[in-house]
Design a protein around this nucleic acid. Structure first.
Length: 139
DNA sequence: GCCAACGTTGGC
DNA sequence: GCCAACGTTGGC
């Protein structure tokens, strides 16, 4: 199973709002970047992801799961853009900050650290394990 | 609020 | 197909 990371500015869409959607989840719309879109197209139902707060907090705050594979993005008529739906699985025990990730051995190549502007990123199995340990949650 | 990094657009 | 201009993201 592949792992991912979803960035959101909590001002625009926060973890609490995501949790409020329950198992129905929420469309991860509005992404207008090909790399991010391609990552979403590669996702399968059941794939796990980190939910990361950018700008404010700059930390991983929860675990999400893909609950619907990529389909047209309702926020645009442009057929180039589609997106998955994700639902909250559980919050992390301890948020993992960008600063911690930068300092953690094994996370030097994590996209969060090396490709700051990409809003939907792949996470390797190794990175997933490390961040889960730091967050105090089961991988 | 600033700015660096990076992606996209459009003229040629 | 190149590249300058422009827009956006996101860390600081």
């Amino acid at each position: 199973m592949a792992c991912w990371l979803f960035k959101s500015e909590p001002d625009a869409w926060s973890w609490d709002q995501q949790v409020a959607k329950g198992d129905t989840g929420e469309e991860w719309g509005g992404v207008r970047n090909y790399q991010a879109r391609n990552n979403m197209r590669a996702m399968k139902i059941g794939d796990r992801g980190f939910f990361y707060h950018s700008n404010i907090g700059k930390e991983v705050v929860g675990i999400v799961e893909v609950c619907r594979e990529s389909c047209p993005d309702s926020t645009t008529d442009d057929p180039r853009w589609d997106c998955v739906w994700i639902k909250a699985v559980k919050p992390v025990q301890q948020p993992v900050t960008l600063e911690q990730c930068k300092q953690e051995p094994g996370l030097e190549k994590m996209a969060l650290v090396t490709n700051t502007r990409l809003s939907v990123q792949p996470v390797t199995d190794e990175e997933w394990q490390i961040v889960c340990r730091m967050a105090g949650v089961e991988a």
